[in-house]
Every structure is written in structure tokens, then in C-alpha cells.
């Protein structure tokens, strides 16, 4: 192949037989691979839609599971999922936003220390979710004595989504043009007011987009929840109750309940529909964030 670079004239499109076969082989491989992937993807999506749609209706969403989930709906599971997400966000968002503000606004001043924070977050982002589950079980459930509860699960997920929330918020804040920082400083406006009243509102779409990504990540998560928020499929009365997240529900129906597959597919469809909505919202907001620059005249 380097010949093509060295002697460009000799490689005129498919002019020699060797190149012809090579080109054809590459071309067919690329086409076949892409069609294969898209085929499998459509198969997967079609399966979920097809098998799920036959289960999902309004009744499914508002009734409680019966006979270990084989029949009935997923109302308590949706409630638990939402509660877990609320806990996760309530912790991860403020913490993440504050950290992101430090990373983007004081990076210069903080130097190595701030870079250390960034590195530690990148490492955290690579930790497997099952390990977050182990940690959450040891720290929140046992050490802090929260037991298997929505609170433990939510806090564990908060730890897990923290890096992604921080990194998106940070890049959102960095995208805010310097002219506003300078403009505010020139009016004698303090840095804290600048951050709170100007930069954060200006970066709001990006911040929410990051939050949405975090929610999506948290909602898809199973391994970190199995031994933190637990399996109980009753309607939770408080965040100190154990609650079953929707992904855990799918897992349990598939693995532990004979004949649970139809409802598992129903739940999977609900989960995927929610994820698509959340991710699209995140994307839309992120694009809006790109548009929000000071107008040029």
C-alpha cells in the first residue's frame, strides 16, 4: 500500500489487476460489515418493539406486578426508578456543577491541584459499574447503615454519574465566551456573582444536557443497583425502603422468573423509549447551547 503514496501515478483508480482485487475486497467488506451491523441492529430493535408492544399499554404502566412479575404491570418499579434517579441527581448535580465551575473558572489559579481533580474524575469514569455496586454496598448500605434502600442505590448512582455530569458541565461553562467574564469584571462585579448570575445561566442548556446524559446512564444501570437498592417490587413508601429499578426488574424477570420474558420485553420497551426521549432532549439542549453565543453585528 505505501506504493500508492510513493508512486501516486501508478495507483490510478483500479487500473492494475492487483489494485482492482484489493479495492473490491475492501469495498465489499465495508459494505457487508455495515449491512450486517445495521441488520442486527434492526433485528434487535424490531424484536424489542414487537415483543414489547404486545405487553405495553396504560394498564401495564399503572398496575402492580403479580406472580413475581409474570403478569401485572410495573407501577411500583417506575416509582422506585424515579426516586432513585431523583436521589442520584439531587446529589450529583450540585456537587458536579460546583466542581465543574472550579475546573473551568479556576483552572489557571489552581494549577496542578485542579488538574489532579480532572485526572481523578477520568479514572473514576473508567471504574466498572459492578465495582460501584460493591462500593455502594460496603459504604452506603453497610458502613452508613442505610441498608438496601432507594437512598443507597441513588447515592451509588450519583457516584457513578458524577464524572459525566462534571465533564459536560465543565465544557459547557468553558464555552461561555470570555467577553462576559471581562465585561462583568470591568463593572466591578465579583467573581462569585459572575459565576452564579451570568456564567451558569448562560451555560444552562449544556448543564441540563449533561444532567440528562447522567440520567440516561443511571437509568440504564443494573449492576450497581442489585446490591444497593435491592429487589423488592412493592411500592416504596420512602427513600429508606428498598425499591426495584426498572433495569433490575428486567434482569430479574429474565433470569429468575420462568415465563417472565414477555413482561421483561414490555419493561425493556418502556426503558428504551424513556432513554431515547432523554437522550434526544440532551442532544437538542446541547445543540442549543452551541447556538447561544453573543450576537455579532
Amino acid at each position: 500500500m505505501p506504493d500508492a503514496v510513493l508512486y501516486p501515478g501508478s495507483a490510478r483508480a483500479g487500473s492494475t489487476p492487483t489494485f482492482f482485487w484489493r479495492n473490491l475486497a475492501l469495498q465489499s467488506f465495508v459494505w457487508l460489515a455495515s449491512l450486517l451491523i445495521i441488520g442486527v441492529f434492526l433485528w434487535l430493535l424490531g424484536d424489542i418493539l414487537w415483543r414489547g408492544a404486545s405487553r405495553v399499554d396504560w394498564e401495564f404502566l399503572i398496575s402492580v406486578p403479580k406472580s413475581a412479575g409474570r403478569s401485572g404491570g410495573i407501577a411500583p418499579i417506575i416509582v422506585s426508578t424515579v426516586l432513585i434517579l431523583v436521589v442520584a441527581i439531587a446529589v450529583a448535580f450540585p456537587l458536579g456543577l460546583a466542581t465543574a465551575a472550579l475546573l473551568s473558572e479556576y483552572a489557571r489559579q489552581g494549577g496542578a491541584k485542579v488538574r489532579g481533580v480532572g485526572l481523578s474524575l477520568d479514572v473514576l469514569a473508567g471504574v466498572p459499574s459492578i465495582v460501584f455496586g460493591l462500593f455502594g454496598n460496603a459504604f452506603f448500605c453497610v458502613w452508613m447503615g442505610l441498608g438496601f434502600s432507594i437512598l443507597s442505590g441513588g447515592l451509588t448512582l450519583a457516584c457513578m454519574i458524577l464524572p459525566i455530569v462534571i465533564r459536560t458541565a465543565e465544557s459547557g461553562l468553558r464555552m461561555v465566551p470570555d467577553e462576559w467574564r471581562l465585561g462583568a469584571a470591568a463593572l466591578g462585579v465579583s467573581r462569585s456573582t459572575t459565576i452564579v448570575r451570568i456564567l451558569i445561566p448562560a451555560a444552562a442548556p449544556a448543564l441540563v444536557a449533561g444532567l440528562m446524559l447522567g440520567i440516561g446512564r443511571a437509568m440504564a444501570e443494573t449492576a450497581a443497583l442489585i446490591f444497593t437498592s435491592g429487589y423488592v417490587d412493592r411500592m416504596p413508601r420512602s427513600v429508606f425502603d428498598s425499591g426495584r429499578a426498572i433495569s433490575v426488574h428486567i434482569y430479574d424477570l429474565t433470569m429468575n422468573v420462568a415465563g417472565g420474558d414477555p413482561n421483561a420485553y414490555g419493561s425493556a420497551l418502556v426503558l428504551i423509549a424513556l432513554l431515547i426521549v432523554i437522550n434526544s432532549a440532551a442532544l437538542w439542549l446541547a445543540n442549543r447551547a452551541l447556538d447561544r453565543k453573543p450576537s455579532r453585528s
Binding site: E179, L182, A185, L187, G188, I198, P294, R296
Partner: peptide, 25 residues
């Protein structure tokens, strides 16, 4: 800086309402 105001080459009103732009400082 309160006593020495500055105007920049490119207009840089904050992304707030007109009133809030003036009220904030």
C-alpha cells in the same frame, strides 16, 4: 472598576434581560 467603567470593542451585553443587565451591577 466601579469608578472606572469600560466599554469593549464588541458589544457584550450579558445574556439576560435589558433590565437585569443594568440591575445586576
Amino acid at each position: 472598576r466601579r469608578d472606572v467603567g469600560m466599554i469593549f470593542q464588541r458589544p457584550n451585553p450579558f445574556p439576560l434581560s435589558i433590565r437585569r443587565n443594568l440591575a445586576l451591577p
